[in-house]
Design a protein around this nucleic acid. Structure first.
Lengths: 206, 206
DNA sequence: CTGTGTGAAGGCTTTCACAGCC
DNA sequence: GGCTGTGAAAGCCTTCACACAG
């Protein structure tokens, strides 16, 4: 099963399905049809089934999917079944907000350290912000085997920070800076540009 | 020019091009080729040109595009040439962070009011958070002619709040709650799910 | 000769239609 | 009978190849 052959959109939808399954689990639902799950996720049922075929067969014909079973299988595929340590670089407005935001932990990610080029006075949730020093940063990433970074530095510094992160061995970047980052092909970047999302919406309003 | 015929991805890229053009403007660059602009935006030059054909002809053959001209044209298309008022609903961790975050104003959006179901002690940037009262909210939206909302309420309340917003006449929602919202077809929703972005990244790391 | 604009080709994703299993 | 799994068809988006303008 070569990962590169699977559409990125499929992977995104897997996360959506996972969310819906979690809610079903909380409601003690044991079995769900592709029709019902797809509706909850906002997609067509054929698409859900097609997405799943990339990874195997998880349903029972005539019955549907076992909620816990499918959820576990998706977690396995996504690699979110184990806790993944993450660091955050850039503790400004957005960065410190994300530190306080609890949504990551809930989904199996732990922000284990935060870095900023300036000393940040307040601790956030018992996490002290370390000074962004290239040597220290690299050391931390290597010793703790960190693979993922949340990047919330100002746009003008984003690329140089990324270069250091990549050199230190980071594999994935969640980038909030409104910049198109240049990275080696084996590094994966997801961009979240809040202003762009608003701009995009404004096109559709009358 | 029917808006529905234009691919959503094209609209997204327009925003990216706009970013790059702004940087070029700041650097006093007057003319840019599709090749150079596309590279800065991280896409192929043919795609940039194809995207633009949906809206007209903006370049000069043999020369390229006038930076200011193209930027203005894109702003016109996106509807971001005029300041757009926005309200924010849900002043928790993420919500108050976004209020403090300056990135929106810079791109022509002003958060003119914030609402929450609980009293929020601190003012953020001189903006007092109003109590989320259905009647007051509706009144504000109608009187101020608000069309866009940033939604940062907890997942379990998201749908009911959205129902009220839609009833009040909102047209576009930037949704940060990890929920698939149900809205009428003429309402447009952009979802930003931070945990999902991380989950998605984790799939790609070895 | 450089660089845009665009019909046509190619590639990727979604949807359909239905075979296969419970 | 009900619902999954899947090859084939349709639809959509990207890329190519080149005509055409400065």
């Amino acid at each position: 099963m070569l990962k590169t052959e699977i559409p990125r959109k499929t992977i995104y939808r897997l996360s959506i399905f996972q969310r819906c399954l979690q809610r079903l689990k909380e409601n003690k639902v044991e079995t769900v049809s592709s029709e019902a799950l797809a509706k909850a996720a906002g997609v067509k049922s054929t698409q859900l089934r097609k997405d799943l075929t990339h990874f195997g067969q998880f349903g029972t014909r005539g019955l549907g999917y076992n909620v816990a079973g499918l959820s576990g299988a998706i977690a396995e595929v996504l690699g979110s079944s184990r806790l993944q340590p993450v660091i955050l670089v850039g503790v400004g407005n957005l960065g410190s907000a994300l530190l306080r935001y609890g949504g990551f932990q809930k989904e199996g990610f732990e922000i284990v350290a935060a870095f900023d080029s300036h000393p940040v006075p307040a601790r956030v949730k018992g996490l002290k912000t370390s000074l962004l020093n290239s040597t220290e940063l690299t050391k931390f990433i290597r010793e703790q085997n960190i693979k993922m970074v949340i990047l919330t530095v100002p746009a003008q510094y984003a690329q140089e920070v990324v270069n250091e992160l990549v050199a230190a061995g980071i594999q994935a970047i969640l980038n909030f800076s409104p910049v198109v980052l240049e990275v080696p092909k084996n590094i994966i970047v997801n961009n979240v540009d809040l202003a762009m999302e608003l701009e995009n919406l404004s096109y559709f309003i009358r």
